[in-house]
Design a protein around this nucleic acid. Sequence first.
DNA 1: CGCTAGTCCTGTCTGC
DNA 2: TGCAGACAGGACTAGC
Length: 268
Amino acid sequence: MPELPEVETIKSSLQSNVGVRIVRVELRREDIVRQKDFAIGEIEGQTITALERRAKFLDFSLADGRHLVLHMGMSGRIYQAPADQVPAEKHIHLLLFLNNGRCLVYQDPRRFGGVWLLDKTERLFSRLGVEPLTAAFTPAYLSRAVKGRKIAIKSLLLDQRLISGIGNIYADEALFAAGIRPQRPAGSLNEEELKALVRAVKKVLRQGIRQRGTTFRDFRDGDNRVGTFQNYLQVYGRGEEPCRHCGQPLQVERVGGRSAHFCPHCQK
DNA sequence: CGCTAGTCCTGTCTGC
DNA sequence: TGCAGACAGGACTAGC
């Protein structure tokens, strides 16, 4: 569910908890912990010193230098609530009670997400590719990444080892904005198209962040509020509705096992 | 190496 | 109203 703009939105909305101490932890499901360098109880009494995003991961730095890292998978949420009003909802797996009167609620029905308790984030983050909103993501970088590759360009955009943070919605939106069909072999893109694609990826991700994410159904920010980028989607989730640009019906096809939305007229 | 299909889960929607 | 089946924003693995 949450892609880069959604995780970035969650991060911003939870920033006020930096500098706050975790007084009590309630782990309701042990099996959501994917990797454990230390026991969950050891985060009790610790202050959150930073909250950052890496790809689709949310990274809580703790005062002792260790990290609590979360991934939302398809259906995960993390939001703050008054500590004395913990929601009586299903699939709440982790609660962090803070000394500012709030608690952080981690909820994930499908459990494709998870929690990492790490001494260092290196092992988890080192296999991730470039952050698409940094200066390191350039046409030259993408050109090297696609060279000789027959894989569909959309699948390549979703490969977190190359570019980290793009998911199904923003991949489709970026390809539409760049005028490139999702099933095109990556290596077939010319310099001009690569340039357009880099620009389009940055553009749609920034728009997504500005609109505080896309709420198709599940996404909520750190205050449990919906985003608004769904009102600006050009292709994703629009089925065979008319293209907003040319009026021709959009098309949905499976590409690399994922649904791909595109305009056969506007995208080449 | 490249790609597909299967896997992990629950919830929701569609069609009968 | 019940039920079966398809599908969902992610990421990993096995196997051809």
